[in-house]
Amino acid sequence: MMTKVELETFVEGTTNYFATAANQPASVGSPYIVQEGRPTVQEFTGLISIAGKRRGIVYFTASRPMLTVMLMRMGETELTQENMCDLVGEVANTISGNARRDFGKDFMISVPTVVAGEPEKIVTPDNTRSFVIPINWRSHSAQLVVCLE
């Protein structure tokens, strides 16, 4: 069963990134559950896999316009595909770092991978509900998806 502490840790990792790197805090939207089918996947996704006591994936997925604004806020002038991939990867990295800090001994956490488009590449464990936590930043909305057995 997903615990509150776990969920909070992942959310905190994500919002941390916005507060520190993007110079503007993000707000957490209303979380919900996806029972069947795939949770949302936007254009750019940074993903970490988790093994150990819990198994599954956690990913951060965002749209190109949102990442564009984020890059600009960070002072980046090259608004390229590579940089956007980099950015979602960084968010995933921060989430992973937070999780490592808090559950290091219980979880094994992979290095982040980045998927641009291609939602079919993101495979959630079978028969497992996903938690979707919208991350609202300025007028944009990204999603943090937590799917652990």
């Binding site: 069963m1 997903m2 969920l7 707000s27 957490v28 939207g29 979380p31 559950i33 936590i133 609202n136």
Partner: peptide, 18 residues
């Protein structure tokens, strides 16, 4: 109130579904 406050709700909802 913010979305973070709702995190316990989804956890409980998940628990109920389970």
């Amino acid at each position: 109130l913010s979305g973070s406050d709702f995190l316990p709700l989804v956890v409980k909802l998940d628990d109920l579904f389970n």
